[in-house]
């Protein structure tokens, strides 16, 4: 029963953190995105095929909070692209491991992309494979691997998932 309570609490906590994460990307301030991570975090976007085969490369491969910040900085200040936005829909986090204040979880996502001259399109589906650093009232991402279900990616993966 304790286990159930513990898992329910963590599911709730991580679910809340992820709801804020999605809000930051879809509706809030992009510069808040890095604040969900610890300083020496790892963030990668890859495909299910690469992930299953143990291939290391990513569409984004960032290994510090500062690099996440730079990603947003570059997108907002340097890069050139057509106006677009995302709408994330997340599933419930599945807690797969609990150990010394570190929790591993997986969460399914669907992301629609809205472009200037197009309808709302289904852009990406997949799962977050995460490791969180958990404290009493917060959880920070130590490692997030965004595993896309398909290896085919529509052009322009600008903003993070």
């Amino acid at each position: 029963m304790n286990d159930y309570k513990k898992i329910a609490e963590l599911t709730n906590l991580i679910g809340m953190v992820q709801a804020r994460y999605v809000y930051a990307i879809d509706d809030g301030d992009f510069y808040d995105w890095p604040t969900f991570f610890v300083d020496d975090c790892f963030y990668q976007i890859t495909s299910a095929d690469n992930f299953a085969q143990g291939l290391e490369a990513g569409l984004m491969w960032l290994d510090s909070k500062a690099m996440l910040h730079d990603r947003i900085l570059s997108l907002l200040e340097a890069n050139v692209y057509e106006r677009h936005s995302y709408r994330h829909i997340l599933g419930q986090p599945h807690i797969s491991s609990i150990e010394d204040g570190e929790v591993e979880s997986e969460t399914s996502f669907m992301v629609a992309r809205i472009t200037r001259e197009g309808p709302t399109d289904l852009f990406a589906t997949g799962r977050y494979v995460d490791r969180y650093k958990v404290t009493e009232s917060d959880a920070k991402i130590m490692k997030r691997i965004v595993v896309l279900d398909s290896s085919y990616i529509d052009t322009l993966l600008g903003f993070p998932l």
């Binding site: 890069n79 529509d154 322009l156």
Partner: peptide, 22 residues
Amino acid sequence: LKLSNLIGPGGYVSMEDGCIGN
């Protein structure tokens, strides 16, 4: 692996190449 952030559909450099043709 880090330099590969420059390339691909979300690459710091390649992302514009993916859009300009359209």
